[in-house]
Amino acid sequence: MRRFSDTQIIALLLEHTQWTLLLSLMAFAGGAALGAAVTVMRVAPSRGWNIAGAVYTNLIQSVPLLLLLFLIFFGLPLAGINVDAWMAAIVSLVLFASAFLADIWRGAIEAVSRGQWEASRSMGFGFGLTMRKIILPQALPLIIPPTGNQFIAMLKDSSLVSVIGVWELMFLARTLGNKDFKHMEMLITAALIYWMLSMCLEFIQSRIERHYRTVSH
C-alpha cells in the first residue's frame, strides 16, 4: 500500500476541505430556501399553514441529525427511491438547516412589533409588501447573527455525513489516520482546519453585523 508524504497529506486534506465547504454551502443554500418557505408558512395569516409549519420544524428539530441521515440514506432506498451518499447527505442537511433557520427567522419576524403589521396593513399594503418593505428590514439585524452561527454550526455538523461514506474533510482524516495508524495526528489536523474555517466565517459574520448595525436605526 502506497504511503503519502506529509505534503501530499496536507494537499489531500485541503482538497477535501473544499468538499466540506461545498457540502455546507449547498446545504445552507437549500436550507435557506426551504427555511424561507417554512417561515412564510409560520407567519402567514392562515391557521392551517401555521400549524403545518410548526409541525415540520418541530419534527425535524426533535430528530438527531445522525438519525435523520440514516433514515434518508437507508430508508429512501427501501421506499424505492435510490439515493447516493452525497444526495442523502445534502437532503438531510437541507432539512435540518431549514427547520432551524425557519425557527430563527420566525422569531425575528415576530419580534417586530404587532403595530408595524397593523400600520402597514391599515394603509392597504398587502401581506407580501408588508413583509418585504416593513417587517424584513426591521427583522434583518436580528436575523443575521443567529443565521451566521447556524452556518458555522452547519459546517461542523456536516462532518457527521462521513459515517455514510461521503468524501469530505472528516472522512478523509479518518481514512488517512486509519491507514497509517496516525489517528490523533489526522484528527488534530482536521480539528485545526475546522477551527480556521470557523474563524474565517466568524470574521465575515462580524463584518456583516457591523454593516447592519451602522445602517439600521
Binding site: S113, Q116, E118, A119, S120, S216
Partner: peptide
C-alpha cells in the same frame, strides 16, 4: 392613527 404611532422606524 394608532395610540403608539407605529411609524416605520427604518
Amino acid at each position: 392613527v394608532f395610540q403608539h404611532f407605529n411609524l416605520f422606524p427604518h
